[in-house]
Design a protein around this nucleic acid. Structure first.
Lengths: 240, 240
DNA sequence: CGTCGGGTTGAGGGTGATCAAAGTTTGTGG
DNA sequence: CCACAAACTTTGATCACCCTCAACCCGACG
């Protein structure tokens, strides 16, 4: 019950599920497990029979090119189902890996399919989640395709801060982020060396304090402006 | 009836819809219209009440940064519904524009919602389409994030060739592509000047003939290899 | 025939990559 | 609690890919 709670919180933000919907979700059989840091949940090429609900911790999706370069596609926080797409896409086209030590809940595709076929409103809420995912991918494309290194980093930090805040997982300007500078580099399509320099640039500008894995953003408005960040693409506003 | 035909062809590739499903889709009220080249279909910030079925022609989705740089997010060909996500995301987070003169069919959200609530299998087929969309975004991120200019272009051409072929819209190695070099630049996160040089590099390598808008790919296997292209992410294989 | 969008070419510059090494923190086992 | 290894961060020097700016060319179209 605890595991599905965070899922419920997420889905209810945007949809009004009725009491039966909520009960049905709470009845979902979830197998909860702990996962070490940097452990693989699913890999490209596999055909999962379950989805992974991230109950606590951080995870990321990534692909690796023939040349061996890794590109991180998205960062995931508690309450999200990073591989929901596997419900209708038979084979994984990317990897899903934890960043921090995490607790994950596995929900079988069968159970989810029963749920979504019987409860179209729940199906729509889940569908919507995958659409928001896609919206975040679009913004990610813009970030790596059309912005300079500093702006990319400012944007990434702004996004994570905003999402953590929305979920009530952290203060907006201060949170733990279990990514190394190498991870950040792979997220932004840059090299770790250059990330280091850009981090220092943000530090000097008074926009970032980063020690180990703890982030403090002293001036979020300016960071957002620098990062060309507009949260429209997160599709969380009250009005829709 | 003609307009929904191409949609049906698409959905049936991956799903076995029953006769009633098919009838229900055929009964969808579609308003068909012609659209000039480079005309806007929906813009960022709008709240569409309909989806756009691309019956003929090419379209693309794009976003523009504060700095005024455009990033193309995807190319769309006949039979696709580039803004299907608007069914569950109230406001557009990007633009949808035609590339060539096109014919488009508009289907109201209301009609689609009725259809998907009554027919879960159709809903799943449409959901799946949006998931494939997301998979293409992921690959696009890798393309702009981690590949060199030549490789990016080779990849883009390989993808378009493969998709056109799959839909039976063109021979795999020869097709019309109504994109200028500026469009290609915006798709790959590069400048038109550099695209021009890279096009010439592919020409010299005997991998591309590009005249006006007609593309010929003399050696697709080598182009695919150069472009690091693996069609897994298109999720079209017979086995899943 | 002139204009315009788009393609092509050249020169020079800058952002970020690469390579290499040293410094720092974290974790582990003695 | 210390010693050591491993992982990560930082710094410096050099390099290359791609950008910028600018001009010219070409074909389409009025």
């Amino acid at each position: 019950m605890q595991a599905t709670e965070c899922l419920l919180r997420k889905l209810q933000i945007s949809r009004s599920l009725d009491a039966d919907d909520i009960k049905a979700i709470e009845r979902l059989p979830v197998i909860v497990r702990d996962a070490g840091p940097r452990s693989s949940i699913v890999r490209e090429g596999e055909r999962p029979v379950q989805c992974c609900l991230l109950v606590e911790g951080f995870a990321c999706r990534s692909k690796t090119t023939d040349a061996g370069k890794r590109q991180i596609l998205s960062i995931h926080i508690a309450g999200e189902i990073p591989d929901l797409q596997s419900l209708h896409l038979e084979v994984m086209d990317h990897d899903l890996t934890t960043l921090s030590r995490s607790t994950v809940g596995f929900i079988s595709h069968d159970a989810l399919r029963v749920l979504t076929r019987e409860r179209p409103i729940v199906a729509e809420a889940l569908w919507r989640e995958t659409l928001i995912d896609a919206a975040m991918f679009r913004e990610w494309i813009v970030n790596v395709g059309r912005r300079s290194a500093v702006v990319r980093l400012a944007h990434l930090l702004s996004e994570i801060a905003t999402r953590l805040r929305r979920k009530g997982l952290a203060a907006e300007d201060r949170f733990e982020l279990p990514m190394t500078q190498l991870d950040i580099a792979d997220a932004l399509g840059l090299t770790p060396v250059h990330i280091n320099r850009v981090v220092q640039e943000l530090r000097r500008a008074g926009l970032l304090e980063l020690r180990k894995h703890s982030v403090f953003l002293p001036d979020l408005p300016r960071l957002r402006e620098l990062g060309d960040f507009d949260d429209l693409y997160l599709h969380q506003s009250a009005t829709g």
